[in-house]
Design a protein around this nucleic acid. Sequence first.
DNA 1: ACATGGATTCGCT
DNA 2: GCGAATCCATGTT
Length: 198
Amino acid sequence: MNRLKKSYFERDPITLARDLIGCRFVRIIDGIEIVGEITETEAYGDATDLASHARFGETKRNNVMFHDEGILYIYQIYGIFYLTNIVAGPTGKPGAVLIRSAQIIKGMERAQEMTNQSKFVKANKDLAIGPGKFSLAFGMNKAVNGISLTDSSTVFIEAKEGTPDIIESKRIGVDYAGKSANLRWRFYNANNEAVSKR
DNA sequence: ACATGGATTCGCT
DNA sequence: GCGAATCCATGTT
């Protein structure tokens, strides 16, 4: 048990995204603990990143991106899925890290139950692989938007042990983003199968 | 007020 | 490789 502190999140999203690989995401629902090792992340920057929601300036939807580091930014897409993001630093600049995948290491049954609440996804061996499925498995929805990972007793992140081998690649699904589309801001664990794409 | 389309996933082709 | 599912913030009348 070594929960990440506020200062950990007060770094730029690229550094944070890379460093979160291997950390443990912990979620407690109705007293049941679901734990997963983070295997895949993406960094989203400020207004100069044409794939980032911050490019619209501060709005009703994305305002948490502009505030405290270490809080959750939950965003719904396609009317169906929620995506889990963590607000990054440096202080005063918008930025976030998208959690794309995790390997469940505790609370598998509860994670399957949460996933099966979706009309569109059935829990299978690829549980929590892909940002929509990650959010389902860990019960991340708009109710947790704005919650701080450094304060909450029901959702937080623990430090990793060791140093995983990390592969970087271009982000998924951002081909529309012009000059930002090919930035290699996606990171995943080279030795873990629980990622959405190789 | 209203139209648009998205940081996705699945199932069928 | 493509279409559908389906919500709501955003941008446009």
